[in-house]
Design a protein around this nucleic acid. Sequence first.
DNA 1: CGCCGGCAATATAAATTGCCGGCGGTGCATTATT
Length: 495
Amino acid sequence: MDKLHQALYRHFGYSSFKKGQEDIIKSVIEGRDTVAMLPTGGGKSLCYQLPGLLTDGTVLIVSPLLSLMEDQVQQLKMRGEKRVAAYNSALTYQEKEAVLKQLHRLKFLYISPEALQSEQMLKRLQAINISFFVVDEAHCISQWGHDFRPDYSKLGEIKKQLAGPVTLALTATATEATLKDISRLLGLEEARYLIHSVDRPNIALHIEEVQDTAEKTKRLTELVRKLQGPGLVYCPTRKWAEELADRITEGTRLRTGFYHGGMEAGDRMLIQQQFIRNQLDLVCCTNAFGMGVDKPDVRYVIHFNLPQTAEAFMQEIGRAGRDGNRSISILLKAPGDKEIQEQLIQTEALSRHDIDFLYEKLAGVRDERGLKETLQQSGLTETQARHFAHLYVKFRHLGNKGREHIYQEMDFRKQQKLSKMEGFAHIAANKGCFREGLLAYFNERRKPRKTPCCTHCGLHLKDYEAKGDHPIMNQLTAWEEELDMIFAVSRDHVC
DNA sequence: CGCCGGCAATATAAATTGCCGGCGGTGCATTATT
């Protein structure tokens, strides 16, 4: 047994690596910047945790969600690793101070891209030894960094200011263009790429076309009644998520919840926990649901509408069948599906006219606060204001030329989003193999045909139907899981 | 674009119709005021 395997066994109790893990770990230990793609549930956190334990210094991990950081900190603590903390707005002033004081003693520090912008934090980080700079869910850099969460696009600058530690970008879903974007924004010119297929062969891909929304709703109820759960239904809006959950509750005996970003944090947590513990058969949700939901036995994912991109689609169906067992993705299509998505994209982008108007209002405004206030008073959405502010700060020193840059950048982002959306619509409309189309989008050639593959290659929905009274089965499972959890906890305490 | 809530008009009193305007997804972080 080599050193790495010994360490794996000693620290984590595993005797072998999952596919792809070892190459990633070796790469970062050798000091190479690495961009890695591992399938959902492929054990990404181990890829920086093990090297972290074998190297002096602190691992800095950028994470997109507070709840994700919380989970990771808990898990490490359960394993007996005390030198771990998260730094974000969920902390009180005192807690933040405590983390800053202890920084040099930490093995793992989880942080949001926003919190990483803090001067104070940056200064403290510059004073300690950082072993690895890790960006978890790195597709967020490309997906959110340009407009929604611009601090994601500043990570490259932060990395530079930290004297360029060895960097690891981890994701499960990215096209070649997205990987390039990640490298560019993080400044990883010499990076090694360790890419795993996005394909999930145990998830069958089904598409159904119906006439209109009414028929869709009816069909959805039929499907969830028959299918073996638990399952997820991705909905286009918050309202639809709630509405469909109501309809399903009325029309079936299934225990149904809904989940979206407009809910209280406590309610969101509750639904997620109930789903994980099999106290719910299905959840109707928006794209807010999923990141960090580590449930192995999701049997189906239904899309009530076209998702905005093929990447989003892969991410969302990827929440099914993590246990490797037979699962299904069902896409419900109807004419006019694109309109909601298209409009979301259209209304978010600012026109030349809007930008000129903002420039007029901003004449004479000097400081950061004035900028924010002015934008707030201009009737922009929060996202629009942030996107514009980001570009304005970046280009304002160029005067009128800077304004041209902003026109172009706004338009470019809009066009890119529209074309990604069209791209997926096109793949879904194709009469050939759906999987082949999807994989081609990710620059992959489809592997030898496995049945069942997709609607166009032949598949039987009957194979995915529930047998018997599964709600009772689920309660039993919940019981067993709870027992398992109790044992897992006590085991960890002993070790 | 398509949907929904709010409001006025209708036509005669409780409820429908129709028009207008706004909104729609993703999450960090809120350091200033009742």
